[in-house]
């Protein structure tokens, strides 16, 4: 299925949890936050949150900046 990830459309496998998605991107150890369709999904809910066709997933981290 197709989803929008950080501004680009990508192909991911069906029945994918947000947690698995983050793990596949090798981001799981980093200080990040995730939002799906502009709603923040708390880390504790990632395992049970399954992505669906056409969803917009945004992953944020902290970067240098005043």
């Amino acid at each position: 299925m197709k989803i929008n990830y950080n501004g680009t459309t990508i192909e991911v496998k069906d029945n994918l949890s947000l947690h698995s998605f983050v793990t596949e991107l090798q981001l799981e150890s980093r200080t990040i936050a995730a939002a799906v369709n502009e709603e923040i999904v708390p880390k504790k809910n990632w395992e049970n949150f399954f992505l669906q066709e056409g969803m917009t997933v945004d992953i944020f981290n902290l970067v240098a900046g005043g």
Binding site: I59, V63, G65, G66
Partner: peptide
């Protein structure tokens, strides 16, 4: 202080937090 941004899908090197956390710095995100 530090900023919150969408992850750059190409570049994963911008990791500034861990050295600061190791020093015991209080983080003030903006």
């Amino acid at each position: 202080t530090m900023a919150v941004k969408r992850i750059d899908t190409q570049d994963h090197t911008d990791e500034i937090i861990s050295p600061l956390l190791d020093m015991g710095i209080q983080l003030m995100p903006n």
